[in-house]
């Protein structure tokens, strides 16, 4: 079977240390005194893996291990410095709860804005609008500005928008980065139901989460990342067991007592 996503030897570096030098004046200063130096930091080192149709893969790892960077690189938001990413079709991505929303705009305007960025035309947006509001269960908030929303409400909205726009995008790969961290359980289950339907339609899903139970229930395979490298890429159970043993944790989040 053809893979939906092939990531081959992808490396990415960030330029660090130049943060404070980001002004013309300081650049000039450095230029005159010849102390210009660029430091690189490799966030992703030689990442390779592939994803089959209908497969759901969990990506786990410590904070700062490069999970979000990997997701953004696959989504094309960041560009890699080395390696290739091949996608057999379209790609959709949802990162965090603040999916490009503008806090000073109303929910209605945000729906229009984000949908149009996803590539939907005004006609489609009009068609999906009520359904988006219904699904997120945020009826009555259409004209409320987003800064008055709770984090979970934003999660609901962004998820709902994403689920509706993929009807149009028809992605082969769906990337989810910590999307369930703020939504309540009932909403999470509702989303997972839809995700299962998508899997049946041979969409591949990559999900980043710190909630290991979610990963262990729903993913067939898991990828463990550390310091920009893939340490384990195997059946979920094997990866989780290895990880938990290494960190001396249980899946319920308790420490293993010696």
């Amino acid at each position: 079977m053809i893979n939906n996503l092939i990531v081959e030897n992808v490396s990415k570096r960030f330029i660090v240390g130049s943060r404070s030098e980001k002004s013309v004046l300081s650049k000039l200063h450095f230029f005159i005194f010849r102390r210009e130096k660029k430091r690189y930091f490799w966030v992703l080192k030689n990442i390779s893996f592939s994803v089959k149709p209908g497969e759901m893969i969990g990506i786990i790892g410590k904070n700062g291990s490069g999970k979000s960077t990997l997701i953004r690189t696959i989504a094309g938001i960041y560009s890699q410095d080395k390696g290739t990413i091949k996608v057999n079709g379209n790609i959709a991505c949802l990162a965090g709860h603040n999916n490009g929303f503008k806090n000073r705009l109303t929910m209605k305007d945000n729906i229009h804005l984000v949908c149009s960025l996803y590539g939907l035309n005004p006609k489609d947006i009009g068609r999906y609008f009520t359904s988006i509001v219904e699904f997120s269960e945020l009826r009555g908030y259409e004209n409320t500005k987003l800064y008055k929303f709770s984090t979970g409400m934003m999660t609901r909205l962004s998820f709902s928008i994403m689920l509706h726009s993929i009807k149009k995008i028809n992605p082969k790969v769906l990337l989810l980065d910590e999307v369930f961290s703020a939504g309540d359980l009932q909403f999470k289950l509702k989303c997972l139901d839809i995700i299962k339907q998508l899997l049946k339609k041979n969409v591949s899903i990559l999900i980043v989460s710190h909630h290991l139970k979610t990963i262990s229930y729903h993913c067939s395979r898991a990828i463990l990342m550390d310091k920009g490298e893939i340490i384990k890429n195997d059946k979920t159970k094997k990866v989780l067991d290895w990880y938990l043993k290494k960190e001396k944790l249980t899946i319920d989040g308790k420490r293993i007592k010696k």
């Binding site: 953004r72 938001i77 991505c93 949802l94 490009g100 929303f101 996803y118």
Partner: peptide, 8 residues
């Protein structure tokens, strides 16, 4: 925030 979360 838009640039960081959506490719367009």
């Amino acid at each position: 925030s838009i640039i960081k979360s959506i490719k367009f």
